[in-house]
Design a protein around this nucleic acid. Sequence first.
DNA 1: TAATATGGTTTCATTTTGATACTTAGGAGA
DNA 2: TCTCCTAAGTATCAAAATGAAACCATATTA
Lengths: 118, 118
Amino acid sequence: MEYDVYVQACPTRLVLDRLADKWAVLVLGKLDEQPVRFNQLKREIDGISQKVLSQTLKKLERDGLVSRSVFATVPVTVEYAITPLGRTLTSTVAALTRWAENNIEAVLAAQQKYDRSA
Amino acid sequence: MEYDVYVQACPTRLVLDRLADKWAVLVLGKLDEQPVRFNQLKREIDGISQKVLSQTLKKLERDGLVSRSVFATVPVTVEYAITPLGRTLTSTVAALTRWAENNIEAVLAAQQKYDRSA
DNA sequence: TAATATGGTTTCATTTTGATACTTAGGAGA
DNA sequence: TCTCCTAAGTATCAAAATGAAACCATATTA
């Protein structure tokens, strides 16, 4: 069986859709360090809404990249952790955020040049 | 100056938004091989619409990742190519699509397991 | 009794997306 | 001359995704 992301019907497109999501990248980056609880993720990922965080985690869990553990404390505690499959992905995902942090100045300069000439 | 993608106002978020886009990933992957014309990209990236391809290319050009060359043929020819800055990114982006192609079966299995238990 | 914390879901207005049609310009064929 | 063709887009509009804010259950603390 041959997979090719350039073919619309290829299931790899689903994966690419998931990975190519800003929030998923940020969530995976945080969970790569250690298991984190819902509200702590919400606090650490500045700007994410509860709804989107909830949806993002649910999708990542469904894809087998993240696991969800509930503890019967009061109030209930829910902890999210990265799975072994997710672990195989984090170095790539981290490279993306690192590239963003390292090359942002070149990108901003390119944008200014582009906007001036337009 | 410190950049941190986990801060909402950080400009790196703009970059992450751009990279964390399925279509941008696919476009950069194609251009990494060789310069390609608009309609050929459209043909090779199965499922992309003209509008979205046009928008994606414009954003990538503005960010300095892709260059656009117009040739005065009839009809006009427009060729898109990757820039040196864009070149620094393609290995990372290629790793994403490779991960998708290599791990799709594990992801599909995880999804089925998740859906059965729900 | 009221406020606080956790981990969500619901609602609704705003954005974004995608499909489709239209445009511009020159050349080829009838 | 009239019509069609290609390349590379733009315009339009309906459908889907997103984000902000409110709501919910439960139990503890002030």
